[in-house]
Design a protein around this nucleic acid. Structure first.
Lengths: 298, 298
DNA sequence: GTTCCGCATGAATCGATAG
DNA sequence: ACTATCGATTCATGCGGAA
């Protein structure tokens, strides 16, 4: 059932259960783990949906292996958010952090991803959820962090970004609804470079592109810049559509991806192979009629 | 040692330990608790500095009383952030949430306060901390929430729509006095505001230069709007310089404040009394030279 | 070649209804 | 009583077609 595929000398992907596949890897061999595991009760059609009560027990064997394969100077960044259920937020994320510390992890920091376009909706007892956690774990206090790599040359960035915006987009971005974008731009224009904070402002990626992903490419890109150099190894044990790997490759890092869902394995194989994009496009056109199969991949 | 002071019929302040003072209040009598307790090891000069290891044990007797005095429809909003120590974030906030749920609290939601101008600084292993938690607890699932009170303008959505009305449309609509156009406008006005999310973008600076506070007035104001109506009762068991009380009073709510630090008790007494502002200003001018005393009040 | 408008669509959540 | 499914709610975003 398990499969391996070497896309090129820098990229390996694996089909199978992460907690088993990870045993294949040597100790202290990975510089960065960046992943967004299936959230509790989500993605039932692909991952089966892990019940909140079982979530910590389900995840801990995997983090145990991640702790082993990570280099002492490496970092594990976990993108996760607890769901609301019966009027309360679930507690499995907090419990996971406490248990991982017992495993030997250091809980170094918690970054906030502010999602400018969060899921809509209205409820009597809560507002829309516009943020997710990016929890940083380390093996030792002496981890590699390349802060200069994520300094923002915001003058030029803001100019190019604004130049490409239509008026309507500009109006949208200046909208005061929870964004604060306009304020930031004016700040950036003043200085050439500044260190960022632990709050990231990114929009979720829209689904109408070729690759649907749970997070925008900017998210793994930022952490890959911050915690790795060229030729370092990045690992995503729940690669999904392969966003983390695609970004790592583009940035000259080695990458390893694992997923238990065959459709994702095939999708990433196509996406990252030299001629894969063409294959994927052709495949997609065929699938336009096969709506059932299309849905199973989502 | 304990003292009480009735500033007016809407405002009582108490000098003393919250876990004792709170025993004086009847069950189910408070609509909103909003507070920012001293963070672990912070404000040593005033509160003595609670060690992170003892923080949960120190706080739980107080939350037990808060649970008793809160109305079943009331809400408890806790502004807190874990400090970093020995390269790690402390875990006392997570442990506190888990213990409070054992006390009977519901953990309804966690809002993020994004501090737009956060404290400056640079460290080799972390970026500036630009966010704090605002943790919402409730006694029951049926709590009061006045969402319309905090709706935010939807940017220029309405403007762009109006701009796109052709002249003929405008004339036509204007000719139907009171019917067509007015009705349309009123429809738009409904859509002119949007519900906010659970991420708040506020500066750290406080508006009132005379009073230093841990948070800007907008912070308690937002939650007082959201969770109380006029004449409801708001309580701050760590009132500090009295920002929560001042805002509550200005908004026509009753307020109760407690603090163990005599300097804060006196400061709030002056700040909220009819002639207190004048007294405070005079006092402050004297204190300009007494830098030591000034610091002790922060 | 731009800019603009219409439209579909999400890591969602609650309450009601159905088995 | 308890779980499973469904409809209603809502708004930032990118794409495609039109001006």
């Amino acid at each position: 059932m398990n499969q391996t595929y070497r896309i090129d000398t820098n990229t390996d992907i694996y089909l199978g259960d992460s907690k088993e596949i990870l045993r294949l890897f040597p100790d202290n061999s990975v510089d960065l783990v960046f992943t967004s595991p299936p959230y509790a009760d989500q993605r039932k059609n692909t991952y089966g949906g892990i019940h909140p009560d079982n979530y910590v027990a389900w995840f801990l064997p995997i983090t145990e292996q991640l702790l082993r394969v990570l280099k002492p100077t490496g970092t594990f960044v976990l993108n996760i958010k607890e769901k609301a259920m019966a009027g309360e937020r679930c507690t499995y994320v907090m419990e996971l952090i406490l248990e991982m510390r017992r495993q030997g992890w250091l809980w170094t920091e918690e970054f906030i991803w502010h999602k400018k376009n969060c899921y809509p909706g209205k409820w009597p007892n809560r507002f829309r959820d516009a943020w997710e956690r990016l929890i940083q774990f380390n093996k030792t206090r002496k981890f590699n962090m390349y802060q200069e790599a994520v300094m923002v040359p915001m003058g030029s960035w803001a100019e190019t970004r604004l130049r490409n915006l239509s008026d309507t987009d500009r109006i949208r971005d200046n909208s005061r609804v929870g964004s604060g974008f306009a304020k930031n731009v004016s700040n950036w224009l003043k200085r050439e470079k500044a260190y960022p904070t632990n709050v990231l402002h990114l929009a979720t990626e829209c689904n109408n592109k070729n690759h649907s992903a749970a997070f925008p490419e900017e998210l793994p890109e930022w952490f890959i810049k911050l915690f790795t150099q060229e030729n370092d190894v990045a690992l995503d044990p729940f690669m999904g559509s392969g966003t983390t790997l695609a970004v790592a490759n583009r940035m000259g890092r080695k990458s390893i991806g694992i997923d238990i869902v065959p459709e994702y394995f095939d999708m990433v194989k196509c996406r990252l192979s030299p001629d894969g994009q063409l294959m994927l496009d052709m495949k997609r056109e065929n699938e336009q009629t096969e709506s059932e199969r299309y849905l199973s991949v989502r």
